[in-house]
Design a protein around this nucleic acid. Structure first.
Length: 615
DNA sequence: GTAAGTGTTC
């Protein structure tokens, strides 16, 4: 310890917590341990609880919950603050279950009264666990104890509702809050954005501006996300100008959100412009750029960006890794897949379940199911995403029976429960392999055994399955009996089937619905005209062609890449539609948005030698 | 006189 020549006076129970807090803030574990030693030397028993709470905070901020618990055990009658310190510690170290456990012990066994701060930490733990039920009971408790005036507590509850998708509860709570700060406003805006309610989010943001309530970078990020989900370029540009005026543009999270917004609004040039103006770029901004390119059908450029990123000595995190694997999947280049897999191994992401699922997808899309299976089998932990990915993989290869076998294995040998996407993968596998009765059985199993409500995608795959095998009456009957109005993909599947089996009457029914639902899509007009052409009904063919011209419809452009020998060519194809498997994988990823960078090994630097070079 | 708590980007 440094001596300042002060010989009189020893640190006491007032000064020690201050020193410990400084250690916690600096993550200075060794120094903190010295202070701990000092405390134990002068106070063998009956350590002051203020000192105790500070010690718990020190250890938990340094990620040492076992040590924190040892300190806690040294007290026979810990008070609410000490209990709360433990709850907070577990929560902030990602062990929300333990946090809730401690809370129950404190209340049920020790009969201690939680205060607002205890409840804030408990609410954070519930958010981590997505436990909105427990959240509601916190809310009830809060009201009974007249604690609903506590701003931080209300904010953390608001956040809980926001993250668990309880939009109405969040909005209601916000309305009832007697005081609101920028966190309350930002949380509700983010809540709307994350739940796809872009108009509500932007309205709220504009209300803030109208009422001259100060917003910050967090608020702006949430508002930009709303523009991104709604593909609202105009509003996005307006917010861009606003943040530029306020000097928030150079905030790294704001610029990254701007890149993301421009990319999702299909404006890659503007996104690149923002990126290039950033004084400092981190792995998140690079990932936004490269994943944006793949969103815009420029996966080739995405791969190039990944290389530039590494040349700039930016180490990918698990999310960036997933993004680049997805770009490579879009291209379907096996040679690159092998390089990236090599890179994943060398950077120590092999046991990350999200990276694993993306690798399985990548190999499946490249047609190498053997390697996909090897990756799957090598994963220590297999969650529903990895199971669904391998099932979908077999489905794409047309190996429906294998997919069904894997599903049965999953149910028999693991605790993993199937979700919407698992069933989508299975149904798609059945459809590709022409397994009608199996597909129907799976669909019924989803409904009755697992009580999962079908999404539009499930309906359209069933229609596709029936249509593909020529069961057109059954398909139409199925559509008519759907509990929700059929969407464009359902009618599209029916139209496709009518086209294959030359049924113009059925094609007309499907097309009529499609023209209503998706009037600007040229593809449907062209499909119907193909049916007429087979019947040599040239009048109707002509009428349809005129319609397309009149509405100035164009088919969507998309990029494709072919691998020829050792060369890779990128070209623009004019009819690249998003395939079913793309959709399944996209849904699979979306169902797992709360991805955390867990297995990031610290000794992973760039190991790029010859064989690992990407594109 | 002293201890615990809320929202951000891929």
């Amino acid at each position: 310890m440094v001596s300042y020549g002060i010989t009189k006076g020893k640190p006491d129970n007032y000064t020690i917590p201050i020193v410990l807090k400084a250690c916690a803030g600096l993550q200075a574990l060794e120094f903190g341990k010295m202070v701990h030693g000092f405390v134990e030397k002068i106070e063998k028993t009956d350590v002051d609880m203020f000192v105790g709470a500070s010690l718990i905070e020190l250890y938990s901020k340094c990620g040492k919950m076992d040590e924190a618990f040892q300190v806690f055990l040294g007290f026979s009658q810990p008070d609410v603050v000490m209990w709360t310190s433990m709850i907070t510690g577990y929560e902030q170290n990602g062990n929300a279950e333990k946090a809730v456990d401690f809370f129950s012990q404190m209340v049920i066994i020790e009969h201690l009264n939680p205060d607002p701060i205890t409840l804030v930490s408990l609410a954070s733990a519930c958010t981590q666990l997505s436990d909105s039920k427990l959240g509601s009971s916190i809310h009830g408790f809060m009201i009974r104890r007249n604690l609903d005036y506590d701003l931080s507590l209300a904010n953390s509850l608001l956040n809980l509702y926001a993250k668990t998708g309880s939009v109405n509860a969040a909005a209601k709570l916000f309305e009832k809050m007697p005081t609101k700060d920028v966190i309350s406003w930002s949380s509700l805006i983010a809540c709307y954005s994350h739940n796809g309610l872009a108009a509500e989010a932007l309205n709220l943001f504009n209300e803030m501006i109208d009422r001259k309530i100060k917003f910050n970078s967090v608020t702006v990020v949430a508002a930009l996300q709303a523009c991104a989900v709604a593909c609202n370029l105009e509003e996005g540009k307006r917010i861009h100008e606003l943040v530029a005026r306020k000097g928030l543009e150079l905030d790294i999270s704001v610029s990254t959100a701007l890149i993301d917004m421009y990319m999702k609004c299909f404006s890659p040039e503007e996104a690149l412009d923002v990126f290039e103006k950033m004084p400092k770029k981190d792995v998140v901004s690079w990932a936004a750029l490269l994943s944006g390119y793949s969103t815009n059908g420029m996966s080739f450029k995405s791969m190039g960006t990944f290389n530039t990123m590494r040349l700039n000595n930016i180490k990918p995190d698990a999310v960036a890794m997933v993004k680049i694997l997805v770009s490579c999947s879009d291209l379907g280049i096996l040679q690159q897949a092998l390089c990236l897999h090599d890179y994943v191994i060398k950077t120590g992401f092999t046991n990350n379940i999200f990276v694993g699922a993306s690798l399985i997808e990548l190999y499946s899309k490249c047609g190498n199911i053997v390697n996909a299976m090897k990756v799957f089998e090598g994963l220590k932990v297999k969650d529903i995403v990895t199971w669904s990915a391998i099932i979908a993989g077999y489905g794409i290869q047309g190996q429906g029976r294998e997919a069904l076998k894997l599903f049965n294995k999953m149910i028999e040998t693991s605790e993993v429960m199937p979700n919407e996407v698992t069933f989508l993968s299975l149904l798609s596998a059945c459809s590709h392999a022409g397994l009608i009765e199996e597909g129907i059985k799976i669909f019924n199993m989803m409904l009755h055994k697992y009580r999962i409500k079908p999404m539009m995608e499930h309906y359209s795959i069933i229609v596709d399955l029936l249509g593909r095998t020529g069961e057109l009456d059954r398909a139409l009957n199925f559509v008519e009996k759907m509990p929700i109005p059929a969407g464009p993909h359902v009618w599209g599947a029916l139209l496709g089937a009518a086209c294959v089996h030359h049924k113009s009457e059925l094609g007309e029914i499907a097309a009529k619905n499609l023209f209503k639902l998706d009037p600007n899509n040229a593809g449907y007009h062209i499909l119907l005209s193909k049916i007429y052409a087979v019947e040599k009904n040239w009048d109707n063919v002509g009428k349809l062609r005129d319609m397309v011209k009149e509405k100035r419809l164009k088919k969507m452009l998309g990029e494709s890449v072919i691998e020829a020998g050792n060369e890779v060519h990128s070209f623009v194809a004019n009819d690249r539609l998003h395939s079913e498997s793309d959709q399944i994988y996209r849904l699979l990823r979306n169902l797992n948005v709360n991805m955390k960078d867990e297995s990031h090994s610290s000794n992973s630097r760039s190991y790029l030698q010859g064989s690992v070079e990407v594109v």
